[in-house]
Amino acid sequence: MDLLWSGLRQAFALVTGGDPEVWAILRLSLQVSGSATLIALGLGIPAGAALALARFPGRALVVSLVNTGMGLPPVVVGLFVTLFLWRSGPLGGWEILYTPAAIVLAQAVIAAPIVTGITLAAVQQVPEKFRLQLLALGASRAQMVRVTLREARLPMLAAVMAGFGGVISEIGASLMVGGNIKGQTRTLTTAMVLETGKGNFEVAIALSLLLLALVFLVNWALTAIQQRRAG
């Protein structure tokens, strides 16, 4: 119990004291996971919308694959991205292993299926009759897609929350492709594992509280947008 309390006190001290290292870690985590979420949105929204609206042979299989991808284990992604980015790997020439870019890449791979799957579900719940009506009123196919996406935008905010929440809290991929290098690729989660390994439990507790606060703030902001629009 005393450990929890001292962890809480230390978390407070770390935040209010403005420890530059902690702020740098916090900033990197936000930047990396934010970038990865943006990339995942850029890929996942068009892919999810296309899957929801298009009919083609093998569609059921693709949808199953996307749904499986939503549960992609981060350490599996980490392992394969590492193998690709190794100096001897197919993307070795990029020379980005153990840099933030590598973490962004791995996290985008993790988040993209999540965004795709939720977009797919959100677009599909817009009634088909609504889409047909739009076309009957003379809308072009592109206009129909745009209006349908706008109808689905509130449930699609869940895609942002789930994608970001998934990658900011993942550890396996960040550790493997980033290497947890001090001042370069140390994120909140990898720092937490390191501090626990060092026996600095107070610091680990403080970092975990910071992570929770961060995830809460992001979700709070997104939920506020979602509920205001809905209400």
Partner: peptide
């Protein structure tokens, strides 16, 4: 395309760290 712009933005944000210059 919004998607393209998002990707470009994300890349500038995420890849800003020094890559290359491995020597």
């Amino acid at each position: 395309m919004v998607a393209c712009r998002l990707v470009a933005l994300a890349l500038t944000l995420g890849l800003a760290a020094p890559a290359g210059a491995q020597s």
